[in-house]
Design a protein around this nucleic acid. Structure first.
Ligand SMILES: [Mn+2]
Ligand SMILES: [Mn+2]
Ligand SMILES: [Zn+2]
Ligand SMILES: [Zn+2]
Lengths: 146, 146
DNA sequence: CTAAAGCTGCAATTAAGTTGCATTTTATTT
DNA sequence: AAATAAAATGCAACTTAATTGCAGCTTTAG
């Protein structure tokens, strides 16, 4: 499930920001790198259990927070009030996310960068852009012909 | 604080969708119409108390849910895990929102409609677009010269 | 005026996320 | 190969937004 290359990548990313390499951080980061969709805390906890990673809930929260602080992972707010997390091999520019209203999964659409064509009203200082699309994902669409 | 015109507007909006006109719905809708920023549940509760509207927390939640279901109000997910609600006199098209990282207020930017220039990957069916910008609002910027 | 449908209040519950503190682990220095 | 300081972890308790079930009360149609 996890290749040598990927393991090395997680370590490299953590060392790049002068972070301590711990089993929890490695395990979490590998999952965020290898999973195609963004993971909620709960989904991460289940995935972690399957890979044999033992960690307290709180430690997972703290590992996720740390990865986001360091810019290694990013998080997307989802319509079920839970944050979802994803990491990429390369530093990613701001991009859109798609959340399926049926299965709640969140997909990174990295090719869909919000064009900064718009102009903000005067006085507003911009830090972050979050373009979130909602609808039906390909899997759900084909499943039940919604 | 609330004019005759506005009161009539709230009633009109509720009747347009064949909803029962109750003091709570009226009070909540008037607040959502008259407040410039989108209100969190907590902010609404405080505002309601000031206007003399008596209502249980749960009833406020239910009134908000109902207004959103009916398309009279819309809600925006905010970075503090609380939904924020706003209503407009006219039916509004999808637009961007700006949340200040300092005061957490959410502003509707109705003139900033996300151009639907982008193309979604094949298979994804689009229902809603949420473009949320984050940064510093004019008030916070001038206050502390951040 | 009456009745049914639909709201509301209250109490209990859910679920994501946070906090404080004692203990363990990591990475660095000797 | 220790010793050490700094940082990460586990555990228990806590916070807070939002939800649920149900009895009682309002609204509206007839
Ligand atoms: Mn992403
Ligand atoms: Mn808005
Ligand atoms: Zn789906
Ligand atoms: Zn502000």
């Amino acid at each position: 499930m996890k290749t040598d290359t990927e393991q090395t990548l997680a370590q490299k990313l953590i060392r790049q920001v002068n972070g301590r390499v711990t089993p929890i951080r490695l395990g979490v980061l590998e999952l965020l790198l290898n999973t195609q969709t963004a993971l909620s805390h709960q989904e991460l906890e289940q995935a972690a259990a399957q890979t044999g990673l033992v960690a307290d809930r709180v430690s997972l929260y703290r590992a996720l927070d740390w990865l986001v602080e360091q810019g290694i992972a990013h998080r997307i707010s989802s319509h079920d009030r839970a944050w979802r997390y994803k990491a990429q091999a390369e530093l990613t520019s701001p991009h859109a996310h798609f959340q399926c209203k049926h299965c709640s999964q969140v997909f990174c659409l990295e090719d869909l960068q919000p064009a900064l064509l718009f102009k903000l009203p005067p006085g507003y200082q911009l830090d972050e852009i979050e373009l979130k699309l909602q609808g039906t994902c390909p899997a759900c669409a084909s499943l039940n012909a919604i």
